[in-house]
């Protein structure tokens, strides 16, 4: 399975243009990459969020594939209903079986916070679908509020940097590892700047025998405070600093993917985003140090899981 960009350009674009997402937004890039990588035609469920409101304003739609939006928190459940209906329609002989990929896009708010229960339930029930979290670490659609995916120290409109509080006070939830604990066939972290890694993971997710989850970092130029042309650079810095490790858990086997990870201090990534300017420029150095300490610890833990997997694989 090799992915060649020039070949991929021959596939008809399933997500068009004219949508109202901001200039430089990473979300439509990730969506286009996911759709381009799929082998089967998709049926998509969307959570409420930037992607949904900016692409489905009546009477128009940016989508050229079937899409269902119901509410903020329940996209995983919506797609379970679609998948179940498909099975029953085929069983009843009311529809010919055909290859289809059931796909969800939800933001980090929809995934980590409000839709956590719905996603967990759908994964446990084993519906065959791919859940793609477009993670921009906050509620950008409502105006850049903090979510449980927001990094420690980040400025948001509900964690403003003030005289006594340096932005967000808490460490973020490790959603990818929480999902991995559901023991589904495929779980991965990806980043929007690394199209090849992301698309390879989409192909694996599509081929998985059960639910799959891909958590994609999609930097938000408005919310993270960087220039619109820096989206891919910021995504790369998140990976190179170890703030967003690229890895997969395939049938329980943990594996780092792609090279060039964690070769810089976190300060390099933080400095690329003005949401951290209060701690990176004459600010509280202890916050940066704390972020570095936690990133180092999580990286070490991740490496151990990968090494244990490698040992178990070589022994079996």
């Amino acid at each position: 399975m090799t992915l060649k960009l020039r070949e991929l350009t021959e596939k008809t674009e399933q997500f068009g243009s004219g949508h109202a997402l901001c200039a430089g937004c990473a979300e439509p890039v990730a969506v286009r990459q996911v759709l381009a990588a799929l082998v089967n035609p998709p049926v998509v469920a969307l959570a409420t969020g930037c992607l949904e409101v900016a692409t489905t304003r009546f009477p128009d739609t940016t989508w050229k594939v079937p899409v269902i939006h119901s509410a903020f928190e329940n996209a995983a459940t919506t797609i379970s209903g679609v998948e179940a209906a498909y099975k029953a329609l085929v069983r009843k002989g009311r529809m010919e079986p055909r290859p289809l990929t059931f796909l969800v896009f939800g933001g980090d708010g929809a995934t980590y916070d409000i839709g956590f229960q719905w996603l967990s339930g759908a994964l446990e029930r084993g519906h065959k679908f791919i859940y793609v979290c477009l993670n921009n670490e906050g509620y950008m659609n409502t105006g850049i509020q903090r979510s449980s995916a927001t990094l420690l120290g980040a400025w948001t409109t509900t964690t403003p940097a003030g005289d006594v509080r340096p932005g967000k006070l808490q460490w973020h939830k490790d959603m990818t590892r929480i999902i991995a604990a559901h023991n589904i066939p495929y779980v991965a972290q990806a980043a929007v700047h690394n199209w090849k890694d992301l698309m390879t993971k989409v192909r694996k997710a599509e081929a998985a025998d059960g639910p799959a989850f891909i958590n994609v970092i999609t930097p938000c130029d408005r919310g993270w405070r960087f220039d619109t042309d820096k989206t891919m650079e910021v995504s790369r810095l998140m990976v190179e600093s170890g703030l967003w490790p690229l890895y997969e858990v395939e049938n329980g086997v943990w594996r780092m993917t792609g090279g060039g990870q964690k070769r810089r201090p976190v300060i390099d990534a933080l400095k690329s985003q003005k949401r951290f300017s209060h701690i990176t420029t004459n600010g509280d150095e202890s916050v940066v140090a704390e972020i570095q300490r936690r990133v180092d610890a999580e990286w070490e833990s991740l490496q151990q899981l990968c090494e244990m997997s490698a040992r178990a694989e070589s022994e079996s």
Binding site: V43, A45, I68, S70, A71, E73, N74, T77, T78, I79, S80, G81, V82, A84, A85, Y86, A88, L89, M95, Q117, W118, G121
Partner: peptide, 15 residues
């Protein structure tokens, strides 16, 4: 909430 959400998905899907 999920019960009705799944029904919404199924019904929009054609079931």
């Amino acid at each position: 909430h999920a019960a009705l959400s799944a029904c919404v998905g199924a019904c929009a899907a054609g079931g």
